Amino acid sequence: MTTLWDTTGSAVVKELAAQRRTGGAVLSGVALTLVVVADESRVAEAEEAATHAAESHPCRILVVVRRQLEAPAPRLDAEVLIGGRLGPGEAVVMRMYGRLGLHAESVVLPLLAADAPVVAWWHAAPPEKLATDALAVFAHRRITDSSIAEDPLAALRTRAADYAPGDTDLAWTRSTAWRSTLASTLDSVSGRRGEPVAVQGARVEGDAANPTAQLLAGWISSRCGCPVSVEDGGRKPNSSGVDSVALQLDQDEEVRIQADRRGGAVISQPNRPDATVALVDRPLGDLLSEELRRLDRDEPYSEALEAATGVSGLAGRSPEREHVWFDPADNGSSSRKRAAAKTADA
C-alpha cells in the first residue's frame, strides 16, 4: 500500500501503474469497476462489503470519500493498494477536500478499468437527483440504499421520482429471501393442485416504515395483481423489516410464512405439515455481491417500486442520464440572480 498525501489525480494513476508493473498483471480478468461513494463514518463498513463482493466479482475498487466541501483549498489524499486489505485486486481510496469533491469524476475517470462496465454504489445519502453526481452519469448500474436514510419511505419515493433503468436499491435486495420462499411455496401449492394458484389478497406484517417491507408488498401486488397491505407487527423484525407474510388464495386457502427468532421461517400451507426454511439476515457484502451479478435493468424492482410508491411509467424511462451541475454552496443565489435578471429585462 502507498499513501499519497495532498496529491493529484495524475500522481494516483502513475502510482497505480507502477505498482501494477511491480506486482504483475493482477487484474487481467477484471469484470467491472466498482465506484463506492461513502461517508467517512461508513468507510470501514463499505470497504469490508466491497472486499467481500470482489471475491465473487473481480473488480477494481475505487472508494470516494467527500470531506469538508467548505475547505478553502482543494486537496486529494489517496491510498493505492494492490493485494492489500481490499482483496487481491487493485483498489484506490480517495479522500477529497474542498471543491474537488464536487468534481470527483475528474480523478475517478482516468482510474476506470479499460473496457469494463462501471457500477456506482452509494453507502451514504445519495443526491435527490442522481444526475447531479457525475459518478452516476457514467455508471452502467447505480446502487443506493433507502434503508440508511433519515426518512426511509421518503427516500423510497425520491428514488421512484428519479428512477432510470439500471438503478437498484439494497432495500430491494434484502427482500430476495422472502421473494424466493414465497415463489417456491406457491409453486408447491400449484403442483399439488395441478393448476395455477390465484392470489386474491396479501398482508405483510412487520415494520411499515421499512422500505424492504414496502417493496416486498409492491412485488406481490405487481406479480399477483391483488391488493396488499403492510401492517406493523407486534415483534421487532430483522433488517428486512418483515415479520410475516400471509397470502389469501382461491378456494378459501391461505399460505403464511412466519419468521422465527433463530434465523429461519415457518411455512404454513394447505393440506401439508408446517415446514421450516432458512431466512437469515445477510451481511452487506452478500447484498452487494448479489447486485453485481447483473448489469442490465432490473424490471421486477421497477415494477415493485411502482406499486409501492404509486409512481408509474418507470420501465419506459431512458437509461441515459445527462449531468446536471449542482453546487451545494450556491444556496440558490444563482437562481435568484437569473430570476432578477429576467424581471429587469421585462
Rank of each mutant, 00 (worst) to 15 (best):
A91I: 07
S221L: 06
Y97L: 14
D169E: 09
G310P: 02
D187C: 05
R60M: 07
V189R: 05
G89Q: 05
R272T: 13
N271V: 10
S268A: 14
D298A: 06
P227G: 07
D145G: 10
R336F: 11
V228Y: 00
R141E: 06
T33C: 09
A208S: 15
I148F: 05
R142M: 10
V36D: 00
L86H: 03
R99G: 08
R142A: 07
Q251T: 10
S56N: 12
W122Q: 01
G23K: 14
R174A: 09
G29W: 06
L295G: 04
L4P: 01
V35W: 00
S335Y: 05
C59I: 02
G29K: 14
E291F: 04
R20F: 02
T2G: 09
D345M: 08
H140V: 05
A38Q: 01
S333M: 11
L153P: 01
S302K: 00
L81N: 08
V92K: 00
A71V: 05
E40M: 09
G316V: 08
R67A: 14
E299S: 13
Q251I: 08
A38C: 13
D243W: 07
L292A: 05
P273L: 08
T343M: 09
G166P: 01
Q19S: 09
E306I: 07
S106P: 03
G191W: 13
P237S: 07
D145A: 12
C224T: 10
R60G: 03
S268M: 09
S180C: 09
I220E: 00
L69D: 04
F326Y: 15
G316W: 04
L292M: 12
V228T: 03
L109H: 13
S240Q: 00
P72C: 10
L109I: 08
A113E: 14
E79Q: 12
A44N: 11
L76Q: 02
I143F: 00
S244T: 08
G84H: 09
N271C: 06
E150R: 15
G9Q: 07
V228L: 09
W178N: 01
L292N: 03
G263A: 08
T185E: 04
E231W: 06
G191N: 13
G89C: 05
D274A: 15
W172D: 01
I267T: 00
D281T: 14
A149E: 01
L130F: 11
G9H: 06
L86M: 14
P300F: 11
T158W: 04
D296P: 06
D162C: 08
T185P: 01
A155W: 03
G191C: 02
F326K: 11
P58G: 11
T144C: 13
Q258P: 04
R67T: 15
G313H: 12
R75Q: 10
V137F: 08
S188V: 05
T2Y: 03
S180F: 08
A183E: 14
G9P: 00
R21L: 14
L292T: 01
L130T: 00
G225E: 05
L215K: 00
R21K: 12
A53D: 04
V197A: 04
P126M: 10
R256C: 12
T212Q: 05
A104F: 01
R142Q: 08
A131S: 15
D169M: 06
D39A: 15
T168E: 02
P227N: 13
R42N: 08
G24I: 12
S146C: 15
L4H: 03
L102I: 08
P58A: 11
T22N: 09
R99H: 07
Q258L: 15
G310T: 10
A38D: 03
A344H: 11
S190L: 04
